[in-house]
Write a protein that binds this DNA or RNA. Structure first.
Lengths: 98, 98, 98, 98
DNA sequence: TCCCATACGGACAAAC
DNA sequence: GTTTGTCCGTATGGGA
């Protein structure tokens, strides 16, 4: 068997293959594109905080509100998951081991 | 004199005013919406890294490539700015007007 | 078993132990000492900028020069690291030992 | 009168003069040197925090301690300044308006 | 002199 | 758990 260039590399192609380079380039560009969009969103968020500030709101408080809401949402989700577990347990209680 | 809610707060409205609460709610929701979108983008980026990995690329290397490209772009941009400064200085040395 | 002050804290000693207090004090003082030195350096840098200014140089340009040089160095360093990674990959492709 | 290259520039020398370039180079290198030292100090500080952490101290608390000590020092200094003001006022109370 | 922009360090969160 | 990246607040310097 021919030596492979590294562990798990490139599905059997050598790294220097033109198609690999092309593929890599494509991946990099897609990532860069998404990062740009993400950055733009961050900028938008920043703008809204600025807007909130000019409206007289304390941005620190606003951030805290959002953080709390996020935690609340997580709690609710946890509870729902727990409910699901219970429901599955009850549904399966006749035929399942658990 | 009526108690003010804080320095420069809310354009003269008390913080507890219904319209203020409504405004705040709107701001919070807009921010949360954007944060969700941003999170989705992060997830997409993560997916691409996973894709790159299964294509045999070392994600560490990919990250490094992207970082270098970013830094390069920044350097070029800075240099252009510097050139602009020089050009302005030269232009200004011939005519006092600017 | 005696109550422990916290997870992994202080190698089994209680936080209130004299030796712990002494150790803490030593750490704090070392940090404060280094911070002072750092502050002094910042002050020196500031002085040089002032000197540059009185020598007729535009400090903004000087700062930009330094920034560009820093970024350039960083790029070079990153690229060298990347080359190292490639070299290792190539070396590794001939011999499994490393 | 000969045109000067800019406002207050370079003590009458044109910016492109070899000695000016040399001077600039020297300034930049001195600054870079100091910045390196400063960076090294920051690194040392970081190391100490790591050391504190392995000794079981909460770095967050350590930072807070240092911050408080700094504030205390500032307060003491303020008080001393205030005392000076009082002392001066008393000394001058026979001949000064205030 | 005051305001604005930039740079630094610290805190926090995410990725590995 | 360690390290890296992002974000926020603050300190510093330049310009009006």
């Amino acid at each position: 068997m021919a030596r492979k260039p590294g562990p798990g590399h490139n599905s059997g192609e050598t790294l220097e293959t033109p198609t690999a380079a092309k593929r890599l380039r494509s991946l990099v560009e897609r990532i860069e594109r998404l990062e740009e969009e993400r950055k733009a969103l961050s900028s938008d968020i920043k703008d809204i905080y600025a807007e909130a500030k000019s409206a007289g709101f304390d941005t620190k408080v606003v951030r805290m509100l959002i953080r709390i809401r996020k935690m609340d949402a997580a709690v609710v989700k946890e509870q729902e998951t727990l409910l699901d577990v219970y429901k599955r347990a009850l549904d399966g209680s006749g035929s399942e081991d658990l």
